[in-house]
Write a protein that binds this DNA or RNA. Structure first.
Length: 278
DNA sequence: CGGGTTACCTGACGGC
DNA sequence: TGCCGTCAGGTAACCC
């Protein structure tokens, strides 16, 4: 489901819910067969203060006083505040509520994931950067010190892959998924199928700027709500109203009026404007 | 190796 | 109404 803006929105929502001095009492798991089996070390996390909740790429990182819980939402994962304990016994648990973080004050943060593409792990916080899920990740797109035209040009040099595939590769830049790749390329005026290695530096610079601008705007809008994405508090984002190309195939381009085209690229639906993307 | 395709899983939706 | 095929925001295991 979520790309960087949605994960960031979830993170901010959870921080609101958690408040200042939240603590984790224990982790409960009703179903361990997510994308990868939930390891024992996740269930072993007990009685720890939640000292921070951060994000790396599309991963949420719960900082638990020296230990970190790593959560990826896959396509349909979500964290929401569950029923209070008194009601939890009467309210039937949703069949897709797989894990719960039981907080010291009795509240429960419930991990729901119908498709079970999400996954969880934990490790000592100092070892996070070496964790196999995190160690090969590229730069954060909103950090201009690490994500810049020199880096993107180096990643694209000699590549005959479509530029859309390149920017969705989490080793090149993190957080860009199918929606925001399409939107960024439209804003930059670059055809999604253009060979990455055949794009000039100036246009790559425009792409860097476009990715950053689109993601920042989407975060400000609280992410995009299509199908089932919701913030922790249940409210929806509204960036979907700003889509220029995603989901608009056959409709006129909002910039030049030409009918938007549609094709499958690397197995993903891709929309672009033949008039303003080259 | 780079690049493309398929699989993973469930639910929603459109067509007949 | 109901059945069936298709598709969905991510990633990784396969192929050539």
């Amino acid at each position: 489901m979520p790309e960087l803006p949605e994960v960031e929105t979830v993170r901010r929502g959870l921080l609101q819910v958690l408040g200042q001095h939240a603590g984790l009492e224990r982790v409960v798991c009703h179903r361990r067969d997510l994308r990868f089996p939930v390891p024992d070390r996740v269930l072993a996390l007990r009685d720890r203060p939640i000292t921070a909740l951060t994000r790396r790429a599309k991963y949420l990182l719960w900082e638990l006083d020296g230990q970190s819980l790593i959560s990826h939402l896959g396509m349909t994962g979500s964290w929401r505040l569950g029923e209070v304990a008194a009601r939890a016994q009467t309210a039937a648990r949703d069949q897709h509520d797989h894990c719960e973080l039981v907080l010291a004050d009795g509240r429960r943060l419930v991990y729901r994931d119908p498709r079970r593409f999400g996954y969880l792990d934990s490790c000592a916080t100092p070892a996070l950067a070496r964790h196999v899920w995190l160690r090969d990740l590229g730069p954060e797109p909103l950090d201009s010190h690490s994500f810049h035209v020199d880096w993107l040009a180096a990643c694209c040099r000699g590549s005959r892959a479509p530029i859309k595939n390149r920017i969705m590769d989490q080793r090149v830049v993190v957080g860009v998924g199918n929606i925001y790749a399409a939107e960024s390329l439209h804003l930059a005026g670059i055809h999604p199928r253009r060979a990455a290695g055949r794009i000039g530096r100036e246009r790559l610079e425009r792409l860097v700027v476009a990715i950053r601008a689109i993601l920042e705007k989407a975060i400000t809008a609280g992410g995009s709500t299509i199908r089932d994405f919701r913030q922790a508090g249940g409210s929806s984002g509204y960036f979907q109203h700003d889509f220029q190309v995603y989901g608009r195939e056959g409709l006129p381009c909002r910039r030049c009026g030409k009918v938007l085209k549609h094709a499958v690229l690397a197995g993903r639906a891709t929309v672009w404007c033949g008039g303003c993307q080259r």
